[in-house]
């Protein structure tokens, strides 16, 4: 644990096989494995999310594997975004919103009483649907999060490394002092990814990160994601089924059976199986484009 970045990655890789062990029983929710999720994966148990008296998501259990991309798909309004916001305690930022259940990062329950959401969010980063760079320079956009979290290393190096990881460095290296707003939409989103990477999270949550972007930008973001899973655990909400099929290792399908019900995790499995031979009919209808 004493070494920086590289050691962390190596460690994650060595732990990956251990995760694979319970891969097989991924279908439909929590594994009852006593061993618990690995240090850098997440395990969600019976999670429900509310907005005031309205229940948006109910009883979701799933294991999120380390160093894999997990995609969440499903029709609009079925609670995918709400769910992913529960995974780094962003949901509770909305007045009246709360979540119940257990969300483990490693062997820690992030909803435990003594857990500080501020620290959780550094370890579980998030990229939002619409690019939301700060109205600061490109450099400051990346450096800010690291600075408030007390980063002691070489800031220039961290900014450069993060921008490179987000595949943005070449485009912005000569204008780091310019405002983040001056970039195109796709560049802004990669800036937001870079800023998330700069605080060295373990998990990156992405809520439809490409939905507001053109196809070329989307392609770049997808390439970036492919790189990211080498070092991070990635969870991504997407409306785009091709995208889910292309980039993810695991896929969860959210669905609402009757209007007004809360959203549920209908099926969860390896992406290949979900798109070729899902267990449930609704999943098949959705991935083949029969509705939604």
């Amino acid at each position: 644990m004493a070494n920086p970045r590289r050691t962390k990655e190596e460690q994650k890789v060595t732990e990956a096989p251990q995760n694979r062990r319970d891969t097989k029983k991924g279908t439909g929710g929590a594994s009852s494995d006593d061993a618990g999720a690995s240090a850098f994966g997440m395990r969600i148990e019976n999670l429900s999310a509310h907005y005031g008296s309205f229940k948006a998501v109910t009883d979701v259990s799933m294991d999120i594997r380390a160093n894999k991309v997990t995609a969440l798909i499903g029709p609009s309004g079925c609670g995918k975004s709400t769910y992913i916001r529960c995974l780094n305690r962003m949901h509770e930022v909305i007045p009246g919103a709360r979540a119940e259940g257990r969300v483990r990062l490693g062997d820690q329950d992030i909803y435990a009483r003594d857990m500080d959401p501020v620290r959780i969010r550094r370890r579980i980063g998030m990229v939002f649907q619409k690019p939301n760079p700060f109205s600061k320079s490109i450099y400051e956009n990346v450096a800010w999060g690291a600075r408030i979290n007390g980063y002691k290393g070489d800031m220039d190096e961290l900014v450069e490394h993060s921008l490179k990881q987000a595949a943005l460095w070449e485009e912005v290296k000569d204008k780091l002092k310019k405002s983040g707003y001056d970039l195109s939409g796709g560049q802004q989103q990669r800036l937001c990814i870079a800023r998330t990477l700069a605080v060295e999270p373990e998990v990156i949550l992405m809520d439809e990160p490409a939905s507001a972007l053109d196809p070329v930008s989307t392609q770049k973001i997808e390439d970036t994601m492919d790189q990211l899973k080498q070092s991070y655990t990635v969870v991504i909400v997407t409306h785009n089924m091709q995208q889910a099929a292309r980039i993810s290792d695991y896929t969860g399908f959210f669905y609402i059976e009757n209007m007004g019900d809360p959203g549920r995790l209908w099926e969860f499995d390896e992406t290949e199986k979900m798109f070729s031979n899902p267990d449930r009919k609704e999943t098949e209808d959705y991935v083949t484009g029969r509705f939604g």
Binding site: N88, M90, V93, V118, R119, I120, R121, R122, R123, G125, M126, V127, F128, N132, P133, F134, W144, G145, I148, N149, C192, R195, T196, V199
Partner: peptide, 8 residues
């Protein structure tokens, strides 16, 4: 939200 997500 952008700031919170970085652990601010």
């Amino acid at each position: 939200e952008g700031a919170y997500a970085l652990g601010a």
